[in-house]
């Protein structure tokens, strides 16, 4: 396959970036999208040019590191996968592919296609945990049975990989889906009840401080989320938030 690429290049956070064109020949449909970029980078290095920097690590859809906007869609055209799981068989000979970083005020570009997502960590630090110490825990794991449905729902919320596609997909760059996934995981478990009110208040406050936008219920986040995190989580967080403010 012959593929035409338009890739965002930006030297560092303070420089102005722009799109650069590259043409690739001999792209195989079995290659993953990132392997296609590896080949491009090998070619650039051979020419003595700086390769395109992009974030990636596990390359199997679980670490949440990879983060490319492909033809305007986070993680590319296929649904329910990350870009590292995307294969070139999803494209055709002669296609033009536009590759950009996540765009959001709270995710500044570091270089080329790499953005700074530490805002997500700070939201988690504000309350995304249950306060138990490691030392000498007396309670047996099976002491509190948890209904399978609740456990499964909690698990589903907990599968968020923190990639940021929801923010990139949202016209307001809102982080509601991400934040609500963590709030829901704990809200659905008995262990999470004690700190529930503080947790949701603190995490939402931090989310706002980081400069993420408001949620206007467009649902683009759910569509683009590679892990299928559901909008129900946002509704649950809103309920939790409301009840926390009432308790005040």
């Amino acid at each position: 396959m012959k593929i035409y690429l338009k890739i965002w290049r930006q030297k560092d956070a303070n420089s102005k970036g722009g799109m650069v064109d590259y043409t690739m020949d001999g792209v195989e449909s079995d290659m993953s999208f990132l392997e296609m970029l590896d080949v491009l980078n090998e070619e650039l290095v051979a020419k003595g040019e700086e390769p395109v920097e992009f974030d990636h690590d596990c390359r199997e859809g679980i670490c949440g590191t990879c983060s490319l906007m492909i033809n305007g869609r986070p993680h590319g055209p296929d649904s329910r996968i990350t870009v590292c799981q995307l294969h070139m068989r999803s494209f055709n000979d002669g296609d033009t592919i536009v590759i950009e970083p996540w765009r959001a005020k709270a995710f500044p570009v570091i270089k080329d296609l790499i953005v700074d997502r530490t805002a997500f960590d700070r939201i988690q630090q504000a309350g995304g945990y249950i306060s138990v110490n490691t030392s000498g825990l007396p309670v047996d794991a099976n002491a509190i049975p948890i209904e399978k449905d609740a456990a499964d729902a909690s698990f589903n919320a907990a599968t968020c990989i923190g990639c940021g596609a929801c923010v990139a997909a949202c016209k307001n760059a809102s982080a509601m889906l991400f934040t609500s996934a963590k709030v829901s995981q704990f809200a659905l478990l008995p262990q999470g009840q004690v700190e529930a009110a503080d947790r949701v208040m603190n995490m939402v406050r931090q989310m706002d401080l980081e400069g993420f936008g408001n949620c206007t219920n467009t649902g683009a986040c759910e569509v683009e989320c590679p892990k299928g995190i559901s909008l129900e989580n946002i509704a649950r967080m809103n309920r939790e938030y409301l009840s926390a403010t009432i308790k005040g």
Binding site: A141, N142, A151, F155, Q191
Partner: peptide, 22 residues
């Protein structure tokens, strides 16, 4: 065995049976 107790207390959602046990 402590690991499982610790993780459950932290809210790690392990798979459960219909009876609610791990």
């Amino acid at each position: 065995t402590n690991i499982i107790d610790q993780c459950v207390a932290q809210g790690v959602p392990f798979a459960r049976e219909y009876g609610g046990l791990l």
